[in-house]
C-alpha cells in the first residue's frame, strides 16, 4: 500500500503547489497551500514521523493558514493583475526550472543507495514520546531559545500592528 499512497499524495501535493503558483486570487492560493500541507502530513506519517504529521496539520494547515486567510480577508486582496511585463522570464525561467529539477534528481539518485526503500513501520522513533525526549534533553537549549523567538515575534507583530506606524 505504500507506493500507491505515496504516489497519490505526491500527486496531490504537486498539483496543489502548481495551483498555488498559477491561481490569481490569493484565497485560491491559500487553499492550495492547505492542500499541499495536508498531503505532506500524510507523507510524514508514511515516513514514521507521527508527531510532526500532527503538528503539520494543527500548526501549519490550521493556525498559520488561518492567519493567512484572515489577512487576505482583512485587506480584501483582489485578483492579481496579469503580469505582462516580462514574458521572457516565463519562457526562460520555466525551462530553467525543469532543467534544475532534472539535475537535482540526477544528483540525488547518485547519492542514495539503490536499496533504500521506504517501508512503513520500519521507523518507529517519530512518536511524541521520542520527539519530546529529544526536545527536552539534547535540544533543550534551542527549544528554550525558540520560546524567546516566539515572544519576540509576538511583540514584533503587536508593534507592527499599532496604528501610528
Amino acid at each position: 500500500m505504500d507506493a500507491p499512497l505515496f504516489l497519490l499524495f505526491a500527486f496531490i501535493a504537486v498539483a496543489s503547489a502548481i495551483s498555488l503558483v498559477v491561481q490569481t486570487h490569493p484565497i485560491s492560493s491559500a487553499l492550495s497551500l492547505v492542500g499541499v500541507m495536508v498531503s505532506l502530513a500524510v507523507l510524514y506519517l508514511l515516513l514514521g514521523a507521527e508527531f510532526i504529521a500532527a503538528a503539520q496539520i494543527i500548526v501549519y494547515a490550521g493556525a498559520v493558514m488561518v492567519l493567512f486567510v484572515f489577512v487576505i480577508m482583512l485587506l480584501n486582496a483582489g485578483t492579481e493583475h496579469k503580469s505582462s511585463k516580462s514574458p521572457m522570464v516565463k519562457w526562460f525561467g520555466i525551462p530553467l526550472l525543469v532543467v534544475f529539477i532534472g539535475v537535482i534528481s540526477f544528483i540525488v539518485q547518485g547519492m542514495l543507495p539503490k536499496s533504500a526503500l521506504v517501508v512503513f513501520g520500519t521507523f518507529t522513533q517519530g512518536g511524541p514520546l521520542e520527539v519530546g525526549r529529544a526536545l527536552f534533553t539534547t535540544y533543550l537549549l534551542p527549544f528554550e531559545v525558540t520560546s524567546i523567538l516566539i515572544l519576540i515575534a509576538i511583540i514584533g507583530a503587536i508593534v507592527l500592528a499599532r496604528k501610528e506606524i
Binding site: 505515496f6 504537486v14 492579481e80 522570464v89 526550472l97 534528481s105 526503500l117 521506504v118
Partner: peptide, 26 residues
C-alpha cells in the same frame, strides 16, 4: 515500496515550485 529518493525528488519539485511562485507572483 518507493525509494527514498522519490521523497527527495518530491521535495525538490515542491521547492522549485515555491521558487517559481516567489519569482512570478506579484
Amino acid at each position: 515500496a518507493v525509494p527514498l529518493s522519490w521523497y527527495l525528488l518530491l521535495s525538490a519539485v515542491l521547492f522549485s515550485l515555491g521558487v517559481a511562485g516567489f519569482l512570478f507572483r506579484k
